[in-house]
Computed example of a mutant assay.
Amino acid sequence: MSKESSLSLLHDYHAAWERGDQAAGIAFFAEDVVVHMGGTGPLAGDYHGRDAFAADWIGRVAAYTDTWEVGGQNEVLLVGDDGVLLLVHEVWTRGERRVETDRLGLYKFSEGQIIEAWFSDMKQQEVERFFGDLT
């Protein structure tokens, strides 16, 4: 994919998340996507396949949190032939608890879909504490 088409795809992908449309956001992932979530908490690790990532990461986060906000301060850091590096702002709440982070995401694309992604939170320890009792 060209750099321009990768940026356009990523823009549309994040627009879905910013409006809270998880189904539309999930649809951007290839069926055999591999997602690497940084850290050591209960959500860290590698997720193989769109359905697994949707159920085992997105579904668990959505069920655990009261609110989940994505975007508002997204910043493209690097665009290359191998992918796009982006900084995304995310906020989660659960009861009186709240965590806010900037998430670094590297996205690789093929045929108009995300085929691999790596994520790491700038406030990794705070995020892991927030989700610490997630089962």
Rank of each mutant, 00 (worst) to 15 (best):
V34M: 08
V76C: 12
R94W: 02
S6Y: 06
G39V: 09
D21I: 07
I26F: 11
F109C: 05
F29K: 04
R50I: 04
H48V: 00
A30Y: 04
R98C: 13
K3E: 13
F131M: 03
M37Y: 07
V99D: 11
D133N: 09
I26Q: 10
Q125L: 14
S2K: 06
D81F: 05
Y47F: 06
P42N: 02
V79T: 12
T65F: 11
S6A: 14
S120Q: 04
Q125E: 14
T67D: 15
D66F: 15
A55G: 03
E31D: 15
Q125T: 14
A52Y: 00
F53Q: 00
E90M: 11
G41C: 04
G49T: 01
Y64D: 05
F131H: 05
I58E: 07
E75M: 14
G49H: 01
E31L: 11
A54Y: 03
F29I: 03
E96S: 14
G38E: 02
A23L: 05
G59P: 10
D66A: 15
L9I: 09
I114L: 03
T135H: 13
L85T: 11
D46C: 04
S8L: 08
I115G: 00
I115N: 00
G41Q: 01
L7S: 09
E126P: 11
R97K: 13
D56Y: 14
G45A: 02
K3P: 00
A54R: 02
V127C: 10
A23Q: 13
E100A: 15
F29E: 03
G132E: 03
L106Y: 11
D102S: 12
S110G: 13
A24C: 09
M1D: 07
D51V: 05
F109S: 03
D46A: 09
G59M: 05
R129I: 12
I26C: 08
W57Y: 14
V88P: 01
E111C: 02
I114G: 00
F109V: 02
D81V: 07
Q124W: 11
E128W: 14
D21N: 10
S6C: 07
T65K: 15
L77R: 15
D46V: 12
V76Q: 03
R103T: 10
I114D: 01
A30H: 03
N74I: 05
D51Q: 06
V61G: 13
D81P: 07
G41D: 02
F28K: 08
Y64I: 09
A23Y: 03
F109A: 04
